[in-house]
């Protein structure tokens, strides 16, 4: 089965604009109007973590400078360059979470970052003050407990971890590319390596948070008033009698037999006494019509609802839009 994904394309025009991936010779040899296609659009989204060494002056961090400074009113730890350090120079871990995972923003105060060494929790970060500071909350008595290890950008989906204190007394691993053994620290968070030399299989990491998403909903009410909707055209609504023909048909007509008796389905505890007749229906689905009486949707009930003539129901239907 051939699968087509959306891809980049641009026709060769007089403006001579071309996609970067098209070679000059291919562009020159193509006729005007030829559609030159590029690579497929990315169809996936992933969490990523960048390790930035000291004096990195990384463009990703520089791009966040104004954003970080705009949250200074919440905490001084957001400040790009302050007594807490210069973020363009500090060794840090930048965790990027695409918005597809959380929606409008990450819920403030919901984030929790855990670091396990051979299955034992060695440290946990939470934003207990709900101001974006990631504070080490445990385990109790752990080194650095109560210290701020970094900040989180809730609206943008970034974690900046700069904490450099040792989180374990004995465990060390190759968290940096120089293959030297370092003790675990928050700046190495989410470091699992990408090949045999750099793998750190003793460490595992857990990030949990709540997203925040707004969903438009449409609510409709359907009314089943007393004495209404107590008749049905369903064949089982009438009593079965083999001696009475259900319908009469001819070349140009079909007539329902009016002598058919409506079945009495009223519940009774006695087998020898016929209960008093009552028209009862079971409502199983609700049709939704537009202004021109076109059926546009059907809502089905999980269990049909018994409707006696004395019952008065309102069905509430909610739809995500």
């Amino acid at each position: 089965m051939a699968t087509k994904k959306p891809y980049l394309f641009a026709p060769k025009e007089a403006s001579l604009g071309a996609l970067k991936t098209i070679s000059t010779s291919q562009f020159v040899s193509s006729d005007y109007g030829t559609i030159l296609s590029g690579s497929d659009y990315a169809y996936s989204s992933s969490i990523s973590a960048d390790f930035l060494l000291e004096n990195h002056d990384d463009s990703k961090i520089r791009a966040l400078k104004n954003t970080l400074n705009s949250y200074r009113y919440l905490s001084n730890h957001y400040t790009f360059s302050s007594s807490y350090g210069d973020k363009s120079q500090q060794t840090m871990r930048l965790v990027s979470i695409p918005s597809i995972f959380y929606g409008s923003s990450i819920k403030k105060g919901s984030i929790s970052c855990k670091w396990y060494v051979t299955g034992t929790l060695i440290a946990e970060l939470q934003d207990i003050k709900r101001n974006g500071e990631l504070i080490q909350i445990g385990p109790s008595g752990s080194n650095g407990s109560g210290s701020v290890a970094g900040v989180v950008l809730y609206n943008e989906g970034f974690l900046l971890l700069t904490g450099s204190w040792s989180l374990h007394n004995t465990y060390t691993d190759t968290f940096e590319s120089d293959l030297t053994y370092y003790p675990p620290a928050w700046k190495y968070y989410m470091n699992t390596g990408s090949n045999g030399d750099y793998l750190t299989p003793s460490s595992s990491f857990d990030i949990e948070f709540d997203g925040l998403n707004y969903i438009q909903t449409l609510t409709m009410m359907a009314h089943a008033e007393k004495g209404e909707l107590n008749h049905s055209n369903n064949p089982t609504y009438v009593k079965y009698d083999p001696n009475i023909k259900t319908t009469s048909t001819g070349s140009s007509f079909l007539v329902e037999n009016s002598d058919k008796e409506i079945k009495n389905i009223l519940k009774t505890d006695y087998i020898d006494i016929e209960p008093k007749f009552e028209k009862i229906t079971y409502i199983s689905q609700i049709g939704i019509y537009d202004d021109n009486k076109n059926l546009i949707a059907i809502a089905k009930l999980a269990n049909p609802v018994r409707k006696r003539q004395t019952d008065n129901f309102i069905f509430k239907m909610k739809l995500d839009i």
């Binding site: 990491f205 857990d206 949990e208 925040l212 998403n213």
Partner: peptide, 13 residues
Amino acid sequence: KVYPKVRFFIHSG
């Protein structure tokens, strides 16, 4: 307003 829960567990790549 909904709050979808998200969890990433990372180990050995």
